[in-house]
Amino acid sequence: MNTTKIIVSACAAFCVALFLPCAAISAGSPERDVPKKFLVPPPPFSEGIFPCSQCHEGMPVNRTPRKLEGMHQNIELNHMPGGWCFDCHNANNRNTLRLANGKIVRFEESYNLCGQCHGTILREWKAGLHGKRTGMWNGEKQYRLCVHCHWPHDPRFKPIKPLPPPVKPSDIK
């Protein structure tokens, strides 16, 4: 009986030993080498608004959803119906953002917050597909935060004026 046990455990150990390296390799070489840090310009804050603690420091926190008065009335939330400031902003430290799982995120890494819902877009943004990148095609690339193009409170890209059309042959003198 004992020998059977030994043989079985030996086989099991052998199998594990066989498969471990494979697992290690597949875990060690991810599908795509994505840089952990993305070079982005500073977040596009409104003039003089950051750090938020300038005003919010020591102010009592009112968590009740309501119509804002006195400050921030220009913000009409046209994103995530039924949403409220503290879905994204950190109530305890307004200079930061807060994920649904309680993790604190700096404004410079706000893409992690957007990626909670827009996961596929975040994946493509990391790969360089979604959004604008400038810099070197074979070197350092400058990313943009989601909020550089999409105002987070009303994120749809706003229409712009097109540059003039080409001259028609009939208009050439």
Partner: peptide
Amino acid sequence: KEPGRYPACVE
């Protein structure tokens, strides 16, 4: 170039 910039239209 090494490194080379993106084409102007991309930027």
